[in-house]
Design a protein around this nucleic acid. Structure first.
Lengths: 202, 202
DNA sequence: ACCTGAACACCGTTCAAGT
DNA sequence: ACCTGAACACCGTTCAAGT
């Protein structure tokens, strides 16, 4: 009684450890390599402890997505107007999603996670005089456009021999990564222009 | 010799039959219910014949996506300017993707399939004086925006009690389907306005 | 209390064997 | 020639059993 026989580690798995292991596997073998078994294996453990901590596979994927969206935003400069900050913010968002290397992760993310990530952008818009309603709508448009764009952008495997084209995205045979950069910037630019114009005639 | 003993059906599986069976299963049980085994089973057959015809699971998913994108476009009216036709075309595209009920199908679609679907829009733009380069770029922007939007739009399960809001998409707790319609229309509208403006200063 | 081992019901895919 | 049955190597998930 009271005597300790159990020799295994006293320290329970933390969700941070689990997510870290999952992210390692994601970067090494892609999202399809991330399984409850592979994550457990990397932690030197069988699946049940992972289930006990994280719930199930969907919850694990959510947690991975949240990991990549955490602390997304560098706060706006004091003299930075919202359209400029929005350009910076969407580029930052795009970079984070690209680091995650698989857009499937972000298509089932719950709204509160995106809401958390948009907070600084929302505040910046309100600071510049937008109504809360208009700012929430603008943030949703920009978030959807960014994630949607990345979801469509499964980069072409290799740069084949193609004539250089004058206009980004105009070559039907594919798109280079520079062209994708320009397409993304143009896309976001059109949205910001439109939102700005709507605000102007408010 | 020459004597027929083999009693099974003489008719090989066609890919149309396979896709039709897969689409049935998709509508009944969702994309996760579509497996090589379930499709074979619905056709009263074991998996190998399905593999023989369609190749593998990825090819099946491609074929399903193509099914939903086939004959996408009602051709433009003779007096219909490209911005109006683009609005119609994107709405049509959106409707087809929504019918498919799972956007994952369209995120791995090969470029030629989208290229085929965009053809009438491309021709309409060229008819109205856009250069091929500009038209291809514009079509890609609109296609990416449409598919990306739908990919983000996993409709909320039920209409909970929420205050009505004046601006589409401005409620942080969720979006009603009417609001999503308006957000989509606004998004596409901003893009078309931007493209039109670029063309104007050409 | 926490973990392991093993199982259940599935996958995608392949292949020897039947007719 | 075309199909079936069975297998291989995986999944997500759960649960009795150990310590």
């Amino acid at each position: 009684m009271g005597k300790r026989v159990y020799m295994a580690s006293e320290i329970q798995l933390s969700s941070e450890q689990i997510v870290a292991a999952a992210v390692d596997i994601l970067h090494e073998g892609g999202l399809d390599a991330v399984s409850m078994r592979s994550v457990a294996g990397r932690l030197g453990v069988t699946p049940p402890p992972v289930y006990a901590r994280i719930g199930n596979k969907d919850a694990l994927l959510d947690a991975i997505a949240e990991h990549f969206l955490a602390d997304l935003a560098p706060d706006p400069e004091r003299d930075e107007a919202w359209p400029d900050y929005a350009r910076r913010w969407t580029q930052q968002m795009r970079q984070r999603l690209t680091e995650a290397a698989d857009s499937r992760l972000f298509l089932q993310v719950k709204r509160p996670t995106y809401l958390e990530a948009t907070k600084p952008l929302l505040n910046c818009m309100r600071r510049d005089g937008m109504s809360t309603d208009a700012a929430v709508r603008a943030c949703r448009l920009l978030t959807w456009a960014t994630v949607g764009f990345i979801a469509m952008d499964h980069s072409p495997p290799a740069a084949s021999s193609r004539r250089p084209s004058r206009l980004a995205g105009s070559d039907p045979s594919g798109v280079t990564s520079e062209e994708i950069d320009e397409l993304f910037t143009a896309h976001i630019g059109y949205l910001i222009d439109g939102i700005e114009r709507d605000e102007g005639m408010r």
